[in-house]
Computed example of a mutant assay.
Amino acid sequence: MRQLEQLTRRRQAVDVQLDEVGRLIGDLEAELAEEERGVSRLEGGFSAFLAGLTGSREEKLAGEKAKALAVRQRLEGQRTRLEWLNTDRAALEEALAEVGSAPEEFTELLERKERMLVESSDPRGRELAEIAQRLAEVDADLREHEEAHRAGVAAAHAVGQVLRCLGGARGASTWDMLGGGGGIADMMERGHLLNADEAAWHAQHLLDVFARELVDIGVHVSPALPKVDTRWFADMFFDNIVTDAIKHQRIARTGEAVGDVAEWVGGTVNGLAARCGELTRGRDSFVARREDVLTG
């Protein structure tokens, strides 16, 4: 019965996540269509003619293409996230099908236990039944908290990887701002940002899993990482201290936002670990009491 309720809550949680990702994909598809129209206007037509007169056509076209590429990458990331969520939901449906008869079996078990207690004249029988029920509840709570803790640890490691990649990008950006990096620093920075973007999608998937595990213990959250901006088209035309400073600030702000998520995950994981300890001690006390009743 407890497992059925747990799986049902998880399915509801993944449905919420699927709705959220569906809306994001719709928004990104509309945004991408608009960006691609901007590219088309600059590649041909009156807008291209005007841009050509001012001598800025190539710069504007490169900028529009870069923005379209950034949106396309985010759209692909959300579509991949959607595939992960659909896979998770299918697994939950299979698990629910396996335990679908749990309510009927649980009711039958309770009826048998009730008859046993009514017919029993030994007072220890009733106490043992109460201990068994409490022990089952504590075991279920402990299992759910341990599962949430494991998911949180995995999410924490993944978010930490995003922070490490952003730290590398920030270091390269600092080097570039100081004038010592040039093109090499730009390439290093972009490489770190691309790694951070890939790591962020993986981390978001694990955060989604963590959120569903937290639902089992009554915590409803939707942790989300900020997008990692991998644009560097400005470097090709406007590589100067102003642009470098803007890039540096952008990386720093993203790192701070990811750091906030990492701090929340870490605090939640620590809280779960403490709760697991409490539940373990409670379970041990019930086990000891059962042994006392049986041997007393």
Rank of each mutant, 00 (worst) to 15 (best):
V14F: 09
V16T: 11
V221Y: 04
G100H: 05
T243H: 13
G26I: 02
G125R: 07
L18T: 11
G277N: 08
Q3N: 08
D244K: 15
E119W: 03
L279H: 12
A245M: 07
N270F: 13
L82C: 05
F49D: 12
D186W: 07
A172D: 04
L294E: 11
M187K: 14
F238W: 15
E29Q: 08
A70V: 06
D216F: 01
S56Q: 08
E130D: 13
E31V: 00
A95L: 12
F238R: 15
R212D: 14
E83I: 08
G277S: 08
F106Y: 06
T87V: 13
L110M: 13
A140W: 11
L178H: 09
F237A: 13
G26K: 01
P123F: 05
V287I: 12
M177N: 09
A132C: 02
A148K: 10
Q249W: 12
A91H: 06
V39D: 06
S56T: 15
A203W: 04
L166G: 01
R150F: 13
A200E: 05
L214M: 15
P226I: 06
H192P: 01
A90T: 11
Q204N: 09
E278P: 08
G282S: 10
E198W: 06
E256P: 00
A132N: 03
R231P: 15
D176M: 08
A132D: 11
L193K: 01
L272N: 04
R275G: 09
N240I: 02
W232I: 15
A200R: 10
A200S: 14
G171Y: 04
H248G: 10
E58R: 14
V159E: 02
E20P: 01
A185G: 10
E119Y: 05
L225R: 03
D235I: 06
A95H: 09
E93H: 09
V209H: 11
G77N: 03
T230G: 02
R143V: 02
L53A: 06
V16M: 07
E43D: 11
A199G: 00
E130R: 11
L53V: 12
R89G: 05
T54L: 12
P123H: 08
G160D: 00
G160V: 00
L50T: 01
G171P: 02
T243P: 05
R11C: 02
A257L: 14
G38T: 01
A154S: 11
S101H: 04
P223I: 14
E104L: 10
G183R: 14
V16P: 01
L142N: 05
A68N: 11
E76N: 13
N240G: 06
R190M: 05
D244Q: 14
